[in-house]
């Protein structure tokens, strides 16, 4: 929606950020001590100059590359595995019986609590961090995929069956594309949770990486450095969640949006009588409209790893129920 954002709204957004930075600068520059203690807190200026110093070093970019590589690997693995497992559980009774209980038992365990498991199981630290990242993102993707697949209207599957399509065709032409809006809700939550876990895992057991560096700075009392780390994490998180959002919008461009407006006028042949407009039943034609906006808010919500996202996949037209007459 940002494409249509007016200048006024942009100003408000920039102003909000500037006001927060200004308040920070004032509170720290004057070492305010009003219950909250800002005396030890680095000023915006100190953080900015520390950032400027760091950006010039190869180590900064190396850390950034390490963290990005870990999250991309773990997240992509989680996306593939989560969609596959979620679809299987939703579509197959066997898979539901075999995987369902296992998933529900493992899901409440915070991914970061899997550090000992990762150390025991995997030969290298690097693989352990990727494992934890993957575990963190896996469950939101699985759960939202499962919901999205279950919420699909049976009429689409029946349509494909009566065209002679089989199970594989139904999977590729109905289940996966139809579940995409819900899947992307899970991916958006997942990428946020993945950042939380990759940074935590780096702090605990990492060599290199933004989380590792931030913790190192803390142990040597380099507070501006800690804030540089936090700002870097924030920027990277914004980058990845924006990428997921953009990809999601791209592949779900078929969703009716509020801005899509009225149906296109009928291409009346010349001389035809003026057609009587037939309104589109908006409510019926609006599955998952809320997904994009819900998903957008989700990564900021510091979701507990494995926390079930809002039933983003709901709202499919249930009107087909009556088709059994």
């Amino acid at each position: 929606m940002s494409a249509g954002t007016s200048l006024g709204r942009r100003l408000v957004r920039a102003g909000s950020l500037a006001a927060a930075l200004g308040a920070w600068q004032l509170l720290t520059a004057y070492d305010v001590e009003l219950w909250l203690r800002f005396a030890q807190f680095p000023t915006v200026g100190e953080v900015a100059s520390a950032l400027a110093d760091r950006v010039g070093t190869a180590a900064y970019w190396q850390d950034l590359g390490h963290s990005l590589r870990r999250i991309v690997t773990g997240f992509l693995l989680a996306a593939v595995l989560g969609v596959a497992a979620g679809t299987a559980i939703a579509r197959s009774r066997w898979a539901a019986d075999l995987l369902g209980p296992l998933v529900e038992v493992v899901r409440p365990v915070p991914a970061i609590a899997l550090v000992p498991v990762a150390i025991l199981l995997l030969p290298t630290n690097e693989q352990g961090i990727v494992f934890i990242t993957c575990a963190a993102a896996f469950f939101p993707v699985l759960v939202s995929t499962r919901h999205a697949v279950r919420a699909l209207s049976p009429v689409w599957e029946e349509a494909v069956l009566t065209m002679g399509g089989g199970r594989v065709r139904v999977l590729w032409s109905v289940v996966l594309p139809g579940a995409l809006p819900g899947v992307f809700g899970g991916l958006s939550v997942g990428v946020g949770v993945a950042w939380i876990c990759v940074i935590s895992a780096e702090m605990i057991s990492g060599e290199y990486g933004v989380g590792y560096r931030t913790w190192q700075d803390y142990t040597v009392v380099d507070y501006p450095g800690v804030f540089v780390g936090m700002a870097t994490i924030g920027a990277l998180g914004l980058l990845t969640s924006t990428a997921v959002e953009a990809a999601g919008r791209r592949v779900t461009s078929w969703l009716p949006h509020a801005t899509a407006g009225a149906p296109v006028p009928d291409a009346a042949p010349p001389g035809a009588p003026a057609p009587r407009p037939v309104p589109v039943p908006e409510a019926k034609a609006a599955p998952d409209v809320g997904t994009a906006s819900e998903a957008k808010a989700a990564p900021d919500a510091k979701a507990v790893p494995g926390e079930e996202p809002a039933p983003a996949a709901g709202g499919h037209p249930a009107a087909e129920k009556e088709s059994v007459a």
Binding site: V155, V174, P177, P256, P317, S323
Partner: peptide, 13 residues
């Protein structure tokens, strides 16, 4: 072929 009472077009196509 079955023509459904309610819209059964695949909305993502």
């Amino acid at each position: 072929a079955l023509v459904f009472q309610h819209d059964a077009l695949l909305p993502w196509r």
